[in-house]
Design a protein around this nucleic acid. Structure first.
Lengths: 328, 328
DNA sequence: ATAATAAGTGTAATCGGTTTCATATGATAG
DNA sequence: CTATCATATGAAACCGATTACACTTATTAT
């Protein structure tokens, strides 16, 4: 069943049927006859033919490093809400933190498979920059700031700065930090700098000694906390770059009969579901990931309609969620 | 840059270039010249044109009720792994538990937009059956058994039967149950029946009185536990249809100074990340959702290549993860 | 020597729409 | 009474690939 057959049944040309679907000039009377035929046959235009002819796929590619992460699924949820609302579909690519795959999917999506791309990445290399430069479809970066590209990210620096300052105000004088790789500008570098500057501004020194790099897991949080304590002695505060790390840290302290928050205050980042069910519950930073997904989608759609004056860079705020692990 | 221009540059026909990409008859020498031209120009065939001509989109639609749920993202992860491996892309549709949207996306995907659909649903109505009957592209159902359709699901009945039997063996004589809507055949009905039959087989009676229906949240678990205790007095065991409900229940017991597992044993289902970080950690049932995603993808791909003798229905096993909430 | 088969190639039809262009009609303006 | 314009329509070109078909040449079987 194609447009020609419908046209024949309705006694019009295929152009008229096309206009019927695309709000072109068409008389009320033909519109009605076509409507009837379409209804009776259940005809739907072939999206493939439309894509080929119009060069619009109405699809947005989303590249993400890991699907089973609350922050990321929230973003996807926000993306989907806005995209579907506007008649776009979402093509998902999971790179499993594999840098090569990120480049591969960028290239795949670029070859006209989608109208635009939302790129959720953690670490940008020179290769990424090169791949991005070669893109012919618009790309919005989510979760990181990348100069020259439309992007949306969170105020990591100030979030951790404020978190650390809060610990100082509560009397902490030996604050440790468990971070992630600094190549990750957002979760790694910005958060670490927030910690460092807050500590220095608070009149403490040698912040770098009280820090270690972990990965994004609870196990790593546990191990690195042990290492940190062995290295620095007992601290009175510990800021962690993610909730998972913080929970691992708390588990270590529990195993050592070190009281949280009695002996040491602990905080994480992300406001994950986990942070609300542990004992003690974990003080953390809330980012609105769903909102950032929605905004990323809106930015991309704006670019697609050629709205050159639209928002091109967004830094989203945060709110500190004080839970039991820092109540003093 | 289209196939014709490449053909001209290589001094061959467009058919030859097409054959170059599709492993058709072509001499080694032409293959080489085409390869060079393709490399130099960076040409890639238009997927839209290919789709139109071949009637294959190499895309699979995935319809899911909620993206921010560990079990579902694990499935998606498994789906993606297998689909991408085989050159397929994943088109994501999130229905937010909206039955109308489920039907709408089924219909959208059906109109030749994808080669096949993976449908992750919770409740099947008559409308769903009708919509499924009208599908012209193959559909694999995940998370539920639906007679007549390729499907993949977990052994909910026996999982809960075994969990309940374990509680009985530990001496429980008053086991309560917090379930979800029985319209959900898998998480609702099958789990509930597993509980009922285990209780009856264990020589206890009146199982139905000790049960209530909650929804999938911790809050609901908290409230319904309160209601259940008010109704039935103190139980000595509580089986919950999900980990979230179980955690809500434990929070209620904590608030009432009722000891878990001292006074009452509690278990959930799903082996979520949450169940591992609470105090006490929650006894639960592990399902391999990632594997079910992989299998669903494999089933669908098999159907697509016309392998009629392939697996059409899979019931996956489970393992009980005994944690602190039931250690007696 | 001849028939049959396999390998290699190009032409042109095809997939199913959208859109340009030419054309027609009726209404309004000058 | 013509010129202009908005509305309405269909024919045909076009998007960019795949593939059926016809054809040539080389190889093998009879």
């Amino acid at each position: 069943m194609n447009i020609g057959e419908i046209a024949k049944l309705a006694g019009v040309s295929s152009a008229a049927v096309s206009r019927y679907f695309n709000n072109g000039y068409i008389s009320e009377e033909k519109r009605e006859t076509i409507r009837k035929v379409v209804e009776k046959t259940g005809y739907r235009p072939s999206v493939q033919a439309q894509m080929l002819r119009t060069k619009k796929t109405k699809m947005i590619g989303v590249i993400l490093p890991k699907i089973d992460l609350g922050s990321i699924t929230s973003m996807v949820s926000g993306l989907l809400a806005v995209l579907n609302e506007n008649g776009y579909q979402l093509l998902l690519a999971n790179t499993q933190n594999n840098s090569e795959k990120e480049l591969e999917y960028l290239s795949t999506f670029n070859s006209k498979q989608v109208d635009g791309v939302v790129f959720i990445a953690t670490i940008f290399t020179a290769k990424h920059r090169k791949a991005l430069k070669e893109m012919t479809v618009p790309v919005v970066i989510a979760g990181q700031r990348l100069s020259g590209y439309p992007c949306i990210y969170h105020d990591d620096y100030n979030a951790v700065y404020e978190l650390t300052s809060m610990f100082l105000k509560k009397g902490c004088r030996q604050i440790g930090y468990l971070g992630v790789l600094p190549q990750d500008k957002a979760a790694g570098q910005a958060r670490f700098e927030g910690y460092c500057n807050a500590v220095t501004d608070g009149g403490l020194k040698e912040c770098r000694e009280n820090t270690l790099v972990a990965d994004f897991t609870m196990e790593s949080g546990y191990e690195k906390t042990e290492e940190l304590i062995r290295k620095c002695g007992l601290l009175d505060g510990l800021i962690c770059a993610t909730d998972e790390i913080a929970i691992g840290a708390i588990q270590y302290f529990k195993s050592q009969k070190i009281s949280v928050p009695g002996d040491i205050l602990v905080a994480g980042i992300g406001d994950s579901a986990l942070s609300k069910v542990t004992t003690p519950t974990v003080t953390t930073v809330h980012y609105s990931f769903e909102k950032s997904g929605e905004l990323a989608a809106e930015m991309l759609l704006n670019i697609l309609v050629g709205n050159d004056c639209s928002i091109r860079e967004v830094k989203l705020g945060y709110s500190i969620v004080e839970n039991e692990s820092s109540r003093k």
